[in-house]
Design a binder for these strands. Structure first.
Lengths: 100, 100
DNA sequence: CCATACGCTACGGATTACGTAGCACGAGGA
DNA sequence: TCCTCGTGCTACGTAATCCGTAGCGTATGG
């Protein structure tokens, strides 16, 4: 599963997630990603463009492509899981014996 | 979206993916993950245990918990997307003007 | 007693990411 | 014309992370 490998590189998922709501220019995208180093951000953006999930619009700003939106939509369930998990983590959560 | 951040750390997604079919002992899991360094693997396994998505069974071997399986199920669509993408990448693929 | 398999650690070198500063280009205003 | 502002992007020294190999401690079976 090679795609999970490059999805698992730092900031890749995050960039896809931050672009889900619409296009963002380089600097704004950088701020959203905890002010990640522009070196790495540019590296990821190049990879994502090479794969074809994002595109640099004429006039500036990065945006998801059609395939990018398809991929990004698959991230939403992960977010749902995460929020449910966070809710269980805050109030006490029961861990079955078999899962320790 | 903090969860996407630690999911985006190296080998995290991969470990979840390799455990989807069932439990694996440390060394076998390591081999499946391109013989990743045991140092890092152990670090990820500790994180995944702390979050509660995997568990070390009595008698050896790592396995997904109930929540782990729920999370792992969300990875399958990513795989589907990946395979479809790979198929489009091999034979010629058309890129719309707006996406270059 | 030895072989095997288990999870896991140590450590030095290689790789990757960070943080700050700044470049090149273009659009718009004084 | 010159100045600002915003755009994507790069350079480079430092810090964090990861890798690769070797081996430890325990347990189980022959």
């Amino acid at each position: 599963m090679r795609v999970l490998d490059w999805l698992g590189r730092r900031w890749t998922l995050r960039v896809l997630w931050e672009l889900r709501a619409g296009a963002l220019p380089f600097r704004a995208l950088r701020e959203r990603c905890d002010a990640v180093s522009p070196t790495v951000l540019n590296e990821r953006l190049r990879e994502l463009r090479a794969v074809g999930v994002i595109a640099l619009r004429a006039g500036g700003g990065y945006d998801l492509t059609a395939e990018g939106r398809a991929l990004g939509a698959l991230l939403a369930p992960l977010n749902v899981w995460a929020e449910r998990w966070a809710r269980r983590a805050t109030h006490g959560r029961r861990i079955p014996r078999s899962e320790r």
